[in-house]
Design a binder for these strands. Sequence first.
DNA 1: AAATCCACCGGTAACGTTCTCGGTGAATTT
DNA 2: AAATTCACCGAGAACGTTACCGGTGGATTT
Lengths: 338, 338
Amino acid sequence: MRRHYATIKDIAHALNISVSTVSRALRDTYDVSADTRKLVLDMAAKLNYKPNFNATGLVKNSTHNLAVILPGITNYYFSTVFTGIQEIAYSHNYNIILYVTNDDAGRELNIIRNLSFSSLDGLLVSVSSQAGSCDHFQEIIDDGIPVVFFDRVAADIRTSKVMQDDYNGAFEATTHLIANGYKKIAHIAGPEGLTFTDSRLNGYLDALRRNGMPIRKKWIIHSGFTQECGENDMEKLWKLNDKPDAVFAVNDRKAVGAIVTLKKKNIAVGKDVGVIGFTNDPMSAIISPSLSTIAEPAFEIGKKSCQLLLNHIKKKNFIPEEIILPGKLIVRESSIRS
Amino acid sequence: MRRHYATIKDIAHALNISVSTVSRALRDTYDVSADTRKLVLDMAAKLNYKPNFNATGLVKNSTHNLAVILPGITNYYFSTVFTGIQEIAYSHNYNIILYVTNDDAGRELNIIRNLSFSSLDGLLVSVSSQAGSCDHFQEIIDDGIPVVFFDRVAADIRTSKVMQDDYNGAFEATTHLIANGYKKIAHIAGPEGLTFTDSRLNGYLDALRRNGMPIRKKWIIHSGFTQECGENDMEKLWKLNDKPDAVFAVNDRKAVGAIVTLKKKNIAVGKDVGVIGFTNDPMSAIISPSLSTIAEPAFEIGKKSCQLLLNHIKKKNFIPEEIILPGKLIVRESSIRS
DNA sequence: AAATCCACCGGTAACGTTCTCGGTGAATTT
DNA sequence: AAATTCACCGAGAACGTTACCGGTGGATTT
């Protein structure tokens, strides 16, 4: 029993003027007198007129919709990035269609394939970690759809990207551990093949090299991003004969997992074994001992990527930009030998 | 430089048949032979045809879009509910347009006013806590747009609602504190005027009455939902001459705030002062002492509300349902006197 | 006074799709 | 053999909006 919404025709009919004039009046473009314009606007308000985006989208070949594709939304980082995106989109009157892939490459592909670009102006995406090929993104870009990657970017695709400074953050985190007297530093990393996993790994390795610290293959463990993964990784490390005395985790959730495992073993986190994470998830301040970390500018990343996308949309042939935002070391209890 | 996507006309032209036939073939409806159907589908695949939702939406007056309006997405509860919603929407090929209000009633109103119902099949909403009037929702429902409320519902509006069992959860939480020997139980509540704030308050009050425990006005504090609010509320409670020996918080974030404040004052949480929360935010397991809580079925709430909305959309004149899902007491360290 | 200009408005086609209806020819019934 | 049915297909209108172009009448120029 859906009520018929007032259309532009209804306004025209009520005012006994033409449809074209109403259209022009509503958009406040050329060729319409102030008087009729006022008449139209008043009548529009009176009839509770709402523009039909399907119709405008059809003729203008542009809706005000952006799609965002994320691995998941139930964690601090992505939900904060999304909030940033939303903030910019809202202020520019764009709507956001959100898809979550659950970090499943198959689902990601399926979502992409079913995307209707006729009702989409652009695409913001952070790729799934089980990334297979990225050809589907390339196709979209070749079709002329503006795409911006953030955080988890597809390396070999030429379009705008925005991310945090993963390399330097990891470098700083590792250096901080070294400065605090830890000598055998492990790294529990993310899944292989993801750009930022590599960057953080390299930052870690270079910090070790720069300071003449030992690098052990066994001290580097790749797995997923969850707390549980962190717990498992820590268990593995502790089974080693040559145990590390500190660990740099690729993110805070894994670092929290590491701390949980260490506490279970009655090992004094900070004193016996140092831990540092990456993200500045609120959890890092709550856990005790509290977790040192590299704060990521998640909100800014969201805002920046959305702004970039809007630029892409406005100017065709926009030159892709890569933006890298710096992180910030936050020292708490877990990395201090006192 | 956006490439022209293949349309139904292109397929028709390439096959030298009529547009109508192609349309029917693609939708697999009546009056089309198996042969031509195959021809059409093959050609569609070959031309990389994608349906234009603006066009279908225009003629069918129905898109496959759902709008979700949330106070915020950066917390466990809402992000999990959203994931549930997304799960159902995805399996039914619906897209979700997500709006976050930042718990700002003005922004909520503005979003609602600008909603284009011509490109929306339905609406899922959890209202902002600074709720003023809810007339704007009533208008939408009167216009025949299917709306489902969840969690933070608008009490006096007749449409489907799904929520957790706030009253019984609060009752159980409070009873649990009593059973563990706490005698002076405070409640740090949510903002007044919100349905579930009231329900949890009432559950708390009834549990006290049932057990003949004292009720003090000063032990009940209303404020926002953040951890900071929880910290402030706890500070206030501790300034009282007649201090409580336990506190039931309206959610886990506030409970965490309370624990943080108590720890700062070197008060033994659990032993000296009991604390229990509501939600089962992952944080509750991380903080130490770990936080007892009532686990909310957030994911199920999301799924259920989306299912309900889809039912609304399918059958016009669907009779509104109110669904209440039970919570579950989870006992951890913060509420045990041992 | 004729020619030109300008502000304003209307008619029509188009966007991509679906729906309704009418029209084929072949197969089946009488 | 005529009448009826049936499976299949096409033509045209419609959805709500914008873009394009042409046409008014009045004011300004020459």
